[in-house]
Each structure stands twice: as structure tokens, then as C-alpha cells.
């Protein structure tokens, strides 16, 4: 059951470092439950996951996690206000139909919301489009235009504007660059919108 932090995807490592021990956490699109499992073992977190795929849900439950099979938009609405200390939406935002409605609903059930997404403003993406003229394909967004689940592409800058327009309060923001194995990476402070592969944002309520 033990999951050492440095085996996890790097963005999840950063997210894990933001979670206060003993918190109550909801992980949306929790996959095979790596983050939840880590948080439970190392941060004494009470966690719940929501995941669409039957096989992944089963894997989570088999490893001892509380996970619900379902669609994140529908599942979130059942919870009472402020049920969770943190709601995590990692690398799923780009697949969501109504992002502002969803984030509003996450800010209702959670005191804080952590969002991570691939940064479409990364320089390799910009160069692909500029020099090749075809829709960019990267390690973070590895699909052709016709088979991608990622119905939206956004940059760090886009998200900041989006947060402002929707009055979501950004409490913290980190831009990261991951290496080949995804479990290694570093934090980007200089020109993040150009150099970061992922953005991770902590949202809170009110001012």
C-alpha cells in the first residue's frame, strides 16, 4: 500500500506537498489512486476519489481506497457545502465541458480547490505550430486532433484571466516542468507561460 512520494507523477508530488496533514480530500479523476494512496499513508488524509473507468475504480478499491465510479460533474453535486478541505482536479480541466460551472461547484463542496493542467503555452508547442503548421502533439497532450479527449487547450495565462473573470481567488500558483519519467521535474519561476509544461493552481473562496 505504501507509495513513496518520488514514484508519483511530479505534479502530484507538488499537490501532495500543499495538503495539510489530517485533511479531508476529494480527488477527481483519481485514476489508479496513486495520489490518494500517498496522502492517506503519509499525510493521514481521509480521501475519496471519483473515477469514470470501472477498471481503475476497482483497482483503487482493491488497494483500500474509497472511490466512486461516476462522472465528476454529476458526482460532485451530491456533497454538502464545505465537505472537503481540498478538492483536487489534476490534469482533467482540459477535458471538462463547463469548466467555470465545475470549478464553482468544487468551491462549494471544498474549502480549497487545486487544479493542474498541461500548459499549452509551452515553447515547444508554440514552435510546432509555427514551423510545422499542424496541431501540436506533445508528451503532455499526446493525441491527434481527431482522437483527443482534451476538448480545451489553455495556457497558464489563460487560466489566470479565467480565474479573474469568474472571481476565483488564486491563493497559490506553481509552474512546473517535468522530465521524461514524469516523476521528476522542477519548478519554473522565470517565464513560466513559455517554459512550464504544467500549471498547478490553488483556488480559494472570496477575496
Amino acid at each position: 500500500m505504501n507509495a513513496p512520494i518520488n514514484d508519483m507523477r511530479f505534479d502530484l508530488q507538488v499537490i501532495a506537498s500543499w495538503i495539510k496533514p489530517g485533511s479531508i480530500v476529494l480527488d477527481l479523476g483519481c485514476g489508479e489512486g496513486d495520489l490518494l494512496s500517498f496522502l492517506q499513508e503519509n499525510r493521514q488524509v481521509t480521501g475519496t476519489g471519483i473515477e469514470k473507468s470501472e477498471a481503475k475504480v476497482a483497482q483503487c478499491i482493491e488497494r483500500g481506497l474509497s472511490v466512486l465510479q461516476g462522472d465528476i460533474n454529476e458526482e460532485v453535486s451530491d456533497y454538502r457545502e464545505d465537505t472537503f478541505d481540498y478538492v483536487i482536479l489534476s490534469q482533467t480541466l482540459q477535458q471538462v465541458y463547463a469548466p467555470s460551472v465545475l470549478i464553482q461547484s468544487l468551491l462549494r463542496v471544498g474549502k480549497k480547490v487545486i487544479v493542474s493542467f498541461p500548459n499549452f503555452g509551452h515553447w515547444t508547442i508554440r514552435l510546432q505550430l509555427l514551423f510545422h503548421g499542424d496541431a501540436p502533439i506533445t508528451k503532455e497532450l499526446p493525441f491527434q486532433w481527431y482522437n483527443t479527449p482534451n476538448i480545451r487547450v489553455l495556457t497558464l495565462k489563460d487560466f489566470r484571466n479565467f480565474a479573474q473573470e469568474n472571481r476565483f481567488t488564486i491563493l497559490k500558483e506553481v509552474a512546473i516542468n517535468t522530465h521524461h519519467h514524469e516523476s521528476k521535474g522542477n519548478i519554473i519561476n522565470f517565464l513560466p507561460n513559455l517554459r512550464a509544461t504544467y500549471g498547478i493552481i490553488l483556488l480559494g473562496k472570496g477575496e
Partner: peptide, 15 residues
């Protein structure tokens, strides 16, 4: 499951 979530029970669900 919905009723259990509303009552903040620890619940897992698989179809």
C-alpha cells in the same frame, strides 16, 4: 450512494 454522500459516509461504488 447519493444519500450516503449527502450524509458524509465513507462510501465506494463500482458498477
Amino acid at each position: 450512494v447519493k444519500a450516503m454522500k449527502k450524509n458524509s459516509f465513507d462510501v465506494s461504488f463500482c458498477e
